[in-house]
Design a protein around this nucleic acid. Structure first.
Lengths: 256, 256
DNA sequence: TTCTTGAATTTGTATCATAAATTACCTTAT
DNA sequence: ATAAGGTAATTTATGATACAAATTCAAGAA
């Protein structure tokens, strides 16, 4: 059943709400459950009951309850299961949950991609440094494996690009900072998709060499070196994107 | 009316979808409109029609169409208006749209706040640097105004804290990087709320002095100086949070 | 002109009904 | 006793209909 009494962060919550219009019943229901999560009164795995339970507890129709649950599901706040023991439960945290939403916002805001790459440069640099400090044996093995995989895919542009992307993601994971991982994960959705092709295998080989150097720096526990190298790596990509925007084409091809 | 034929970024979209379960009709509808946005086929202001139009175009019930629109609205992808010329339109980008979702994910993921502050330190440092480079006369005036406002609110802890938060936000705006603004805006929701009280007016005066110095550096167009000062400023806060976690209390009080 | 009023449209909400998915339990056969 | 399979119960997914509330717009009154 649903019980929301605690309101530790009432003021914060009020502030968020003031930005919206809490007019409809469905919105009010969303707000109440959202606040319960933000206040810590509801945690991952807590069972909210079936749609029928919720609609009765809040004195709304099942439709309204369903709409509220759809909103919460879109935010990654609840998970909904069908069947006998089904219903809504507070979801587990998911570093990918905001990726979609952020990608949409970037599209609709027409945010200059140079600004995104600037942030990516800074954050990936930090990630490389932390990876050099905190990477486990398993992290290193995974990075070696991905590097090997990429070198075998050097002629398949799409597969190579995806593998290369996984390499960057693995570095973010090796940094062992969930916050960093989540932020980078969302930024990646914004930049990579449109330009993830690599026309020439020579370029791919350059990428492999860069990644090789980076991984060696991480294995040497050279945090400052890894940081600087990664920043240069991303700044190189940033420059190529800049060239594309200015000239409309690119002779060198983009890489990861 | 709704027409989605273009699929420039089919591959990307497929990849996102593969993470989810596109089983229900409502989800399929969400996916189609989301893909339209990501592919650039739908832009802010485009009219999607009324719920009735949508339900007929997609051969689903009004209920299903409504649920899809609720999901899209939760992602900030559409805006819904009531009345004669009402219906759903593709929303304008909103730098605050992801704040709520991200805050929820941070809550549910129980992401260590030290990691968030580390990122904040890096990004706010960058923001201060860019602000020193790109701030307009209006930006400077706004910062001066906020600083004056804060100094008058020195005895009202809550109001002072909010004003101080606005100062940081204004710096992010003065950097004139939408990407930076959006990222910082979302991170702020995570950290500030629980600890936004300042017990002692002396501490508030320290804050004012720090912000004064920072603003002067920005006015002097000293990017490197502003960057370093802001990082120290945030790292100071980060250390105080660390003390709270270790000792369970804090003698100095937290500040912004 | 300006204001009011009312009709038309569209979302918000409720209720009822059916299909599909999932679980739990019971039966049956080996 | 145990495993297999089938059946019933629960719950979401979807659809249909109805009415209330909000909003727009235009016609008509002052």
């Amino acid at each position: 059943m649903i019980q929301i009494q605690e309101r530790k962060r009432q003021k914060f919550v009020t502030k968020i709400n003031s930005l919206r219009k809490p007019v409809t019943n469905a919105d009010a229901l969303v707000a109440q459950i959202r606040d319960g999560i933000l206040a810590g009164a509801m945690r991952s795995g807590d069972f909210l009951g079936s749609e029928r339970d919720i609609s009765e507890n809040f004195n709304v129709s099942r439709n309204t309850a369903r709409e509220a649950l759809r909103s919460l599901a879109a935010m990654g706040a609840v998970e909904i299961k069908v069947g006998v023991k089904g219903g809504a439960t507070i979801a587990e945290g998911d570093v990918n949950a905001i990726g979609e939403t952020l990608a949409i916002q970037h599209c609709l805001s027409e945010i200059p991609e140079d600004g995104v790459l600037e942030i990516q440069s800074v954050l990936e640099g930090l990630a490389a440094e932390r990876a050099a400090e905190y990477a486990t044996k398993e992290d290193i093995e995974k990075l070696e494996m991905l590097l090997k995989e990429a070198s075998e895919l050097i002629d398949d542009t799409v597969a190579f690009s995806n593998s290369s992307l996984k390499f960057h993601t693995a570095i973010a994971e090796a940094a062992h900072s969930q916050a960093l991982h989540m932020q980078l994960n969302s930024l990646r959705y914004v930049i990579w998709p449109p330009h993830n092709t690599i026309p020439q295998p020579e370029v791919a080989e350059n990428v492999i060499r860069s990644h090789r150097t980076l991984l060696d720096l991480i294995k040497d526990r050279n945090g400052a070196g890894a940081h600087e190298f990664m920043r240069d790596h991303i700044e190189h990509i940033r420059n190529q994107h800049r060239k594309i925007r200015e000239k409309g084409y690119l002779e060198d091809a983009i890489c990861c």
